[in-house]
């Protein structure tokens, strides 16, 4: 059942409407899972998950207990215009939560989204990095919420759980705002912007069914999930370009690399020269790798997860 979450009138003859697909099982009021995506208009990995999850749950309707709300597009105008932010507003939608009824249209929309999701047993907020970086399937958790969220994240069938520091600026995200209102919210990052990686989507759907079973929303055995690597900031090393040019990778995404191994080159097509050779600062897993070749000085090239798995 498609339901309206919140809407606002656009300037010229159009309505901006946030919608959700509500799937109800037995005892619909007993539990509620919110699966949200499409906050950034250039992140499309969640579109596959929204589509395939709806189809999967339709087949499992007899085993479903409670309600699953799928929000495929929190930023419909961004998706329709291939634009990461909020068209005409110049802000990142994931920096305006919890929203407001007294500021701008998008903050009014954000407020409506918050009110709709608040109170769910769990919210899963699916992101797809950006057009520049490819990510392995992972859950990102603010250290302030780690005690509550890490046990749930372990069920999501993601490869990696990154417990990161509590940057003040992240207090304007959907996940932070919902967690602050005691609606547990997990942020999934996987894949790359403007693309759909079906295998990652299928991996996450298995995880969502697993967590639904844990929440008592699925009356059938939980599908098996792989244990993730759980890590904090201290185990993550960043590799940034120090020169501008074109990135030519010398490793593949999700490879394991040794300290000092060549990760890639910054090439100068004008001269045929090599501007920079980028080496891995530690041994570990390349869980983030640059996808978009053009780099400026400072552009993020890779993140390496070092240390032992656990």
């Amino acid at each position: 059942m498609i339901k309206e979450v919140i809407s606002a009138e656009l300037s010229v003859g159009e309505t901006l409407m946030i919608q959700k697909n509500r799937i109800e099982g037995a005892d619909a009021a007993s539990h509620r899972l919110a699966v949200v995506t499409g906050t950034h208009g250039d992140e499309l990995e969640g579109q596959y998950v929204a589509w395939q999850l709806a189809r999967t749950l339709a087949k499992k309707k007899n085993a479903l207990c409670g309600t699953v709300d799928i929000y495929p597009a929190l930023n419909p105008l961004g998706i329709s215009t291939i634009y990461r932010g909020l068209p005409g507003f110049d802000l990142d939608m994931n920096r305006i939560f919890p929203g407001s009824r007294d500021e701008t249209m998008y903050e009014y929309i954000a407020d409506g989204i918050m009110r709709d999701i608040q109170g769910a047993d769990l919210c899963i907020d699916i992101h797809a990095s950006n057009i520049f970086l490819r990510e392995i399937p992972q859950v990102r958790i603010n250290e302030k919420s780690a005690d509550v969220l890490t046990p749930l994240a372990r069920l999501l069938n993601m490869d990696f759980i990154w417990i990161h520091s509590a940057a003040t600026v992240l207090e304007s995200t959907l996940a932070y705002s919902l967690n602050a209102l005691h609606t547990p919210t997990l942020v999934v990052e996987m894949g790359v912007g403007m693309r759909i990686t079906k295998s990652y989507g299928d991996q996450l759907i298995t995880g969502i069914l697993s967590v639904m079973r844990h929440l008592g929303m699925l009356k059938e055995p939980a599908p098996p999930v792989a244990p993730p690597i759980v890590s904090t900031d201290g185990s993550v090393s960043f590799v940034n370009a120090n020169e501008s040019g074109f990135f030519i990778p010398q490793v593949r995404h999700a490879d394991r690399v040794e300290q000092g191994q060549l990760l890639g080159l910054i090439a100068d097509p004008m001269s045929g020269g090599i501007q920079e050779r980028l080496l891995s600062p530690i041994s570990g897993l390349v869980f983030t790798l640059r996808e978009y070749p053009v780099v400026n000085e400072g552009s993020l090239i890779a993140r390496i997860l070092g240390g032992s798995a656990g």
Binding site: A8, E9, L10, S11, V12, R101, E103, T104
Partner: peptide, 8 residues
């Protein structure tokens, strides 16, 4: 020049 609803 043009405005959506609910805006300052």
């Amino acid at each position: 020049q043009i405005l959506p609803s609910h805006t300052v």
